[in-house]
């Protein structure tokens, strides 16, 4: 009986909602979007209101672009209900758009307009935009070179690390010989090999590939090994009573069971190989984003450095996103995996 009276109360109360809560609800839902639009208008105004203290060619276009973004945000927020998932995504990210707009405005004012931060070490946003528009070919070449070097070294290192890890985890004899070597060489930072690698390998390219593979291989080996070693004996017992041969035990029991560990190794290897990549490019390889950074520094082209850093961080983050996407596909059977 009491449940009936409760729902009756709710039903009769519903139509009596007044206008004030409606407005409050609208502000709660769309306020951040409107604020974001305002922040980007502020950014646009900060670009166009004052004269630049330096000579940058993209200030006007940047101001216009900021107004365009502000307009899109505003219309998107107002019409979010008609835009489906895009509208929802905009609402969810609106607070970040506010923060970004405020940050860009402060940055613009503090650098290009009043030079509170010393130039040329702190270039304004339009200087970085200028790099992307005017120095694009060289930047793209560098991106391409970095990706090629990283991908080659990483794939070689991951493959060798995985095979070594499975072998050590599976075979006592392999473990006997490989384990001490791994303990001796593995913890050494791969960059410590730089001087030796650069004169023993025929090219700086192959030397860098070797170093990236080394940096990737160690964590992948150790985690694959620990993954294989920690597989419960019960799984092997079950498979053996069902008629499994040793090859089946390795390929269909040990490796799938170890896969969550393997992905932790691949993730750690990716991180340490990025470090090696950049150092190798700065020191020996005459291409890639690391080299671009070094080159820009040599010319005191600080805007180029920031531009390259932003690209580099997008690439590294993208690589990790890709790795996690692959993991989520392969490990759908796991509960509660970390979302990247």
């Amino acid at each position: 009986m009491s449940t009936y009276s409760l729902s009756d109360g709710l039903a009769s109360g519903a139509p009596r909602i007044s206008r004030a809560p409606l407005l409050a609800a609208w502000v709660k839902e769309s306020g951040a979007g409107v604020a974001a639009s305002a922040a980007w208008i502020a950014f646009g105004l900060s670009c166009l209101w004052w004269e630049d203290v330096g000579d940058w060619s993209r200030t006007h276009s940047l101001g216009i672009a900021a107004f365009v973004i502000a307009a899109i945000t505003l219309f998107g927020t107002v019409g979010a209900d008609y835009l489906g998932s895009a509208g929802r995504a905009l609402r969810q990210r609106a607070p970040w758009l506010v923060a970004l707009g405020v940050f860009l405005t402060l940055w613009e004012v503090a650098t290009a307009k009043f030079a509170w931060l010393p130039l040329p070490f702190f270039p304004p946003p339009q200087a970085i935009i200028e790099v992307y528009t005017d120095d694009l070919p060289k930047l793209l070449d560098s991106v391409f070179a970095s990706v090629r070097l990283q991908l080659g070294g990483y794939l070689i290192g991951a493959t060798i690390g995985f095979l070594t890890g499975v072998s050590i985890g599976w075979s006592r004899a392999v473990g006997y010989w490989v384990h001490p070597v791994l303990r001796f060489i593995g913890p050494l930072p791969a960059t410590a090999w730089l001087p030796i690698a650069f004169f023993t390998f025929p090219s700086s390219w192959s030397a860098s590939t070797f170093l990236i593979a080394l940096a990737t291989g160690f964590p992948v080996t150790v985690l694959t090994w620990s993954g294989v070693a920690s597989v419960s004996n019960a799984y092997y017992d079950v498979a053996r009573t069902l008629g499994a041969k040793p090859s089946f035990l390795v390929l269909k029991v040990a490796i799938p069971a170890a896969l969550p560990h393997v992905f932790v190794g691949l993730f750690m290897g990716l991180g340490s190989s990025f470090a090696v990549l950049v150092v190798a490019e700065m020191i020996g390889v005459k291409a890639g984003l690391g080299w671009y950074l070094q080159w820009a520094q040599g010319w005191a082209a600080y805007a180029n450095m920031y531009a390259a850093l932003i690209v580099m961080s997008l690439l590294c983050s993208g690589a990790i996103t890709l790795l996690f996407a692959i993991r989520d596909r392969l490990l759908v059977w796991q509960k509660g995996t970390v979302k990247w």
Binding site: S232, A234, Y235, D237, V238, T241, L242, A257, L331, W333
Partner: peptide, 15 residues
Amino acid sequence: PSRVVVFQDPTLFPW
């Protein structure tokens, strides 16, 4: 496989 064991834990392969 003519003598198969069912253990106390199901030990299904989670993957």
